[in-house]
């Protein structure tokens, strides 16, 4: 299958990347995203699973140490942002900031 290269981040993706600045497992990411966005952005486990796979494929995140629980399949896989991921996130952050500053003058005039 051809690899899908990420060009930019959607809103949920942006929050997931922000959450992964620290190593975290799936369920923790979902909670963190809710917390960071004031429960505005909600991610279901299926969507998160697909997103993490895409990030990993693009080298933006990498598996960190795994939290083992009783059952072998029930292990909690942790992820952390990579150097490439940090660069990507910074670029997105700068782009969003630029969007705000670009819009600011116009929006001020509207008020």
């Amino acid at each position: 299958m051809p690899r899908e290269t990420l060009q930019s981040l959607t809103e949920p993706m942006y929050y997931v990347m922000l959450a992964l600045v620290k190593p975290m497992c799936g369920i923790e990411i979902m909670e963190k995203v809710g917390e960071l966005s004031g429960q505005r952005v909600v991610i279901g486990p299926g969507t998160l699973y697909t997103m993490l796979a895409k990030f990993e494929e693009n080298g933006l995140i990498t598996p960190a140490d795994t939290t083992q629980s009783a059952a072998p399949w029930a292990k909690r896989k942790n992820y952390i942002i990579t150097h490439k991921g940090k660069e990507f996130l910074t670029r997105e952050y700068e782009r969003l900031k630029r969007q705000i500053s670009d819009g600011e003058k116009i929006m001020e005039g509207l008020k």
Binding site: G26, G44, P45, Y49, W73, R76
Partner: peptide, 16 residues
């Protein structure tokens, strides 16, 4: 399969 088991596990942890 293994990957789907991971998917199911993530769903279970989030309450499904």
């Amino acid at each position: 399969n293994q990957k789907t088991a991971e998917y199911i596990e993530l769903c279970r942890q989030s309450g499904w």
